[in-house]
């Protein structure tokens, strides 16, 4: 791929992400809905659309940057960009849609994203398998963990798809009694799924910050705050709450915040590399990944959606 194409693609991608994120977070989207908009399942579903969209925005930028590094040497490397962009778009649509029915297109895009994430993981494993050292747990497996195709990255695409797919199921779930999805109590199942996502993402942040030698004490934040959020969510999923989950709610809000603050830190980190932003073509690739932390925000939003459901419907 020619440099200019890469530049144009990157710029367009960034624009799309900003536009999508703006659409998702627009408060008015919630206010403008009519009729049964206060139905808790729909509210939770829309929150999930938002969460999914945020994660998709993060994966769109991240895979864009990483696959640009890889010079798109395999055509399939464009797939996560397309899929993430679509996920972002349908999520934007979903956050503005107050109807209690699943949407065909959204549904299939989300399902497609989940599938793409899985296939991507397969691709990345295959790639590592081609390198000397492969998966053997000798020390050069670290080399592959740090520098080869990242194993965990595609699962973020899958996670965005999964959350979105879940939101569609939630939307169409029966409104009488406690909502259930796939036969499970919707709130709890979602809390558990989100907790797992947070743990995995914190794991990835842990690996990458270990790679960066924790040279800044703030680098411990993403390996402490989100796991606690995950624990609170897991506890919520496992118990029958009587009172509102005050602590969990605040902790999830904190987690949302650190996702965005983290991106700010990473922007500063790029500036701190040799040549700073003037040398962006190197430093955006080799410096800290700017879009990565916002996955935490997306997951925390999903966690908040789960809390909302559970508080509304103690049996959900």
């Amino acid at each position: 791929m020619r440099t200019n194409d890469g530049l144009i693609a990157a710029t367009l991608g960034a624009l799309a992400v900003v536009a999508g994120a703006a659409a998702i977070t627009r408060k008015s989207a919630f206010g403008s809905a009519v009729g049964r908009r206060h139905q808790p399942t729909v509210i939770a579903a829309r929150r999930l659309n938002r969460a999914s969209g945020l994660i998709a925005a993060s994966t769109l930028l991240d895979s864009g940057i990483e696959h640009y590094r890889g010079a798109f040497h395999n055509r399939a490397m464009i797939a996560p960009l397309v899929v993430s962009a679509l996920t972002l778009a349908v999520s934007a649509h979903g956050t503005r849609d107050a109807r209690p029915v699943a949407h065909r297109l959204r549904d299939s895009v989300y399902a497609g994203a989940a599938l793409t994430g899985l296939i991507g993981t397969g691709f990345h494993l295959y790639n590592i398998g081609k390198r000397p050292g492969r998966f053997s747990w000798k020390n050069y497996s670290w080399q592959n963990l740090f520098y080869a195709s990242p194993i965990l990255a595609p699962s973020a695409v899958a996670l965005a798809g999964l959350l979105g797919y879940y939101s569609e199921r939630l939307r169409e779930s029966r409104s009488t009694g406690a909502p259930r999805v796939f036969g499970l109590p919707a709130g709890r199942a979602l809390a558990a799924l989100t907790a797992a996502g947070l743990v995995a993402t914190a794991g990835e942040a842990g690996l990458l910050h270990f790679r960066g030698a924790y040279h800044d004490p703030f680098m411990y934040v993403p390996v402490t705050v989100p796991p606690i959020a995950a624990a609170l969510l897991a506890e919520t999923a496992a118990s029958r709450p009587r009172k509102p989950r005050r602590l969990a709610r605040w902790w999830l809000r904190l987690t949302t915040l650190i996702g965005f603050v983290g991106a700010g830190f990473h922007i500063f980190g790029v500036h701190r590399e040799m040549g700073g932003w003037r040398n962006w073509r190197q430093n955006v690739l080799n410096g800290p990944p700017i879009p990565a932390p916002s996955s935490f925000s997306g997951l925390a939003l999903a966690g908040l959606a789960a809390l909302g459901l559970i508080e509304e419907h103690p049996h959900a």
Binding site: R131, P132, G133, K138, N139, Y140, W142, Q143, F146, Y147, F210, R211, G212, A213
Partner: peptide, 29 residues
């Protein structure tokens, strides 16, 4: 590296190993 293949045990090196370039992979192969 995280562990060193030869000699008595030594602690992990303070910073992570650098990415190996193609010339380095030739030696590995």
């Amino acid at each position: 590296p995280v562990t060193y293949p030869w000699g008595p045990k030594r602690p992990r090196y303070p910073y992570r190993a650098h990415e190996i370039n193609a010339a380095g992979w030739v030696l590995a192969q």
